[in-house]
C-alpha cells in the first residue's frame, strides 16, 4: 500500500475537520465521521469533493464506504495519489 507524506496527512486532516466543522484536535485517526462527528451522507460527499478539489485527485464514489474515518481516507488517497 502506498504511503502518503506527513504533509499530505496534515492537509487532509485540515480539509476534513473543516468540512465536519470540528477543531482538528477533536478529530483522531480512528474517530468516525458519522458516529462520532454527526456527519450525514451529504457531509461525506463534501469530504470526498473537498479532497478532490484541493488535492487534485479523482476519488471513485465506490471508495466512500472505506472513508469512515481519517485512517480510511489516508488509505484511499494513498492508493490513488502517485
Amino acid at each position: 500500500m502506498a504511503v502518503i507524506s506527513a504533509d499530505t496527512r496534515d492537509r487532509i486532516k485540515t480539509l476534513v475537520s473543516d468540512v465536519l466543522e470540528v477543531e482538528s484536535d477533536e478529530l483522531t485517526d480512528t474517530s468516525r465521521f458519522v458516529e462520532d462527528h454527526d456527519a450525514d451522507s451529504m457531509r461525506l460527499i463534501e469530504i470526498l469533493s473537498s479532497l478532490e478539489l484541493n488535492l487534485k485527485v479523482t476519488i471513485p464514489q465506490s471508495e466512500l464506504p472505506r472513508m469512515v474515518n481519517l485512517s480510511g481516507v489516508y488509505d484511499v488517497v494513498g492508493e490513488i495519489r502517485p
Binding site: 463534501e46 469533493s49 478532490e52
Partner: peptide, 14 residues
C-alpha cells in the same frame, strides 16, 4: 475554472 468540471465545492450545491 477547476481542474475537472466536477471539482467543485459540493457544499455549495444545496
Amino acid at each position: 475554472t477547476g481542474e475537472r468540471p466536477y471539482h467543485v465545492e459540493s457544499g455549495l450545491i444545496p
